[in-house]
Amino acid sequence: MGRIVSSITDGKGFDLLLVGLTMVFLLALAGVPLVYNVVMSFQQVDMFNLSTFSRPFAGFSNYVEVVSQPEFWLIIRNTAIFVFGSIGGQFVFGFALALFFMLKFPFASTIRGLFLVSWVMPGLVVGALWGWILAGDFGVLNAILKGIGLIDNTMFWKSDPSLAIWAVTIANIWLGLAFNMMLLSVGLAGISQDLYEAAELDGANGFQRFSTITLPMMRSTIGAVLALGLIYTLQQFDLFPAITEGGPANSSNVAQYWAWQWSFQLFDFAKGATVSVMMLVFVLFASLVYVWSTRHEVRG
């Protein structure tokens, strides 16, 4: 008994205790629900057997039904637009801002800090704000675009089926911008100024310094940012109920919102689980990329 106590206060026991707590937490609150969700996608679930675990096995019938829904491919397309549009926009603008704030000018880091506001705000609030900005007749965005002569007619961002998914994507780009900028800024700050000076003396111009020093040195940071971006975008939910509710006619519906609709509006929990298992495969892929791109970080 004494040995166990001393091991916990001084030795390996303490390490095992810490790891154990984390493992219990992860298994109970992430592992079990995940497995439960996967199991549910292979079962027949209705309101009567919702409270029991033993339900009729359904094989792949849930998957077949989900894929054969008329809106399935539309939602896949929208999800792709939303995910790649958001990641692309967040990354390009985030990188540009990160580079900009690396320049030495007064209050650079203060102003950069203010950008975190977008990250701190709840998604529903951001959604409401962008809902107003993007509004057709009285929206600020339309007023600006018309003012500078870019468009003549009012753009109905939220109700035009060809624009609705882009409306949510624009809002999400703004929402994720600060996160991208911050991670990329950290990566940029990690590159020694000496390297740029050496490259400059070696004859590299601005573009060459960016492509031969900055980009290769940022490789693991960029990989991590893109992978995390994919994960965060796939779990972005708040903006959809706040801006378009997936409409009009599913034209801005995406997989994560669709899964919620199946489960909590149509109460078909099996289909909701099925859609989220399909997403899980993508997230798993992104996680692998993330782990792979940060594998050097341990060495520092």
Binding site: D194, E197, A199, L201, N205, M217
Partner: peptide, 20 residues
């Protein structure tokens, strides 16, 4: 004249080797 056009080479205290 920018450094890259001065045709001088510098050896830094930190060596500033390109790590990648």
């Amino acid at each position: 004249v920018p450094p890259r056009k001065r045709d001088v080479a510098m050896v830094f205290q930190s060596y500033a080797l390109y790590p990648h």
